[in-house]
């Protein structure tokens, strides 16, 4: 974190093997480990929450049902009736990212969404899915979308490349948005934590001033809780929007 007078805020994103030699040979770092934890948390939440299967639900069952309804409504309201087919995918995506973001806020944990490789893989998955669905539903008409309706044909050489570029930039913006937000939050955490340690080394007055970064980090935690949920929502809603365009005739 704070090596001497310098701050290594990016060191927290380094991947290390876990489970010793086995992890090393399987390329199993803390990132996939937290993915497994996230998956277990999501599954446990639903299985344990829905275990009573009561008609009049308890608190945990209500929470599970609310999450289900929230994503279901998001998928169906945004995509349309076809959204029912994509609901499990959107649900998986949203909660995988959300729990991944929140797990990263725990001490000694790791946010796998702070790696561009992971967020880009997720974004490309959404992007490829939307293309496949578009081609399946719309066929060759899918390519007609690159020429805006009503635009003069003379502008086609200009508009079509712009539209294609705009279309191709979707996975980039989708992945970088999530990655950048998570990295920024964790870097700020590390920076202010490092300030605290550095200030504490300055003696009595340093100890007093060091309270400031701690307070800022507490506020940052609230902000990161908001950002974590917001980024998962943005990722899921944009997925729904892309899929809506894909299923639109």
């Amino acid at each position: 974190m704070a090596a001497g007078s310098s701050i290594d805020a990016l060191g927290q994103f380094e991947l290390h093997p876990v489970l010793g030699a086995l992890g090393e040979s399987l390329r199993f770092s803390q990132s996939p480990m937290m993915m497994i934890v996230a998956a277990i948390v999501v599954l446990a939440f639903l299985y344990v929450g829905m275990r009573p299967a009561a008609v009049v639900p308890g608190r945990l069952q209500s929470a599970a049902e609310m999450c289900y309804d929230f994503i279901y409504n998001m998928a169906v309201d945004t995509i349309g009736p076809e959204g029912r087919a994509f609901f499990p995918f959107v649900f998986t995506l949203f909660f995988f990212i959300l729990v991944g973001n929140y797990l990263g806020l725990l001490p000694f944990s790791f946010a796998f969404t702070s790696h561009i490789a992971v967020t880009l893989a997720l974004a490309l998955m959404v992007f490829c899915l939307s293309i496949i669905v578009s081609l399946k539903v719309q066929g060759a008409k899918f390519f007609a979308h690159f020429m805006p309706a009503g635009a003069p044909k003379a502008l086609a050489p200009l508009l079509i490349p712009i539209e294609i570029l705009s279309f191709l930039s979707r996975p980039v913006s989708l992945s970088i948005r999530l990655f950048a937000n998570m990295v920024a939050g964790h870097v700020m955490f590390d920076m202010f934590a490092a300030f605290t340690i550095m200030l504490a080394g300055l003696g009595f007055f340093g100890d007093i001033i060091a309270v400031g970064p701690v307070v800022i980090n507490i506020a940052l935690m609230a902000l990161e809780l908001l950002v974590g949920a917001l980024q998962a929502y943005v990722f899921a809603i944009l997925t729904c929007i892309y899929l809506r365009e894909a299923v639109a005739h």
Partner: peptide, 17 residues
Amino acid sequence: YVIGQVIWGAGIFLVLY
């Protein structure tokens, strides 16, 4: 490990899905 987490992530995401 950077590539490894993507491959692991694919499997974990698939199982979760």
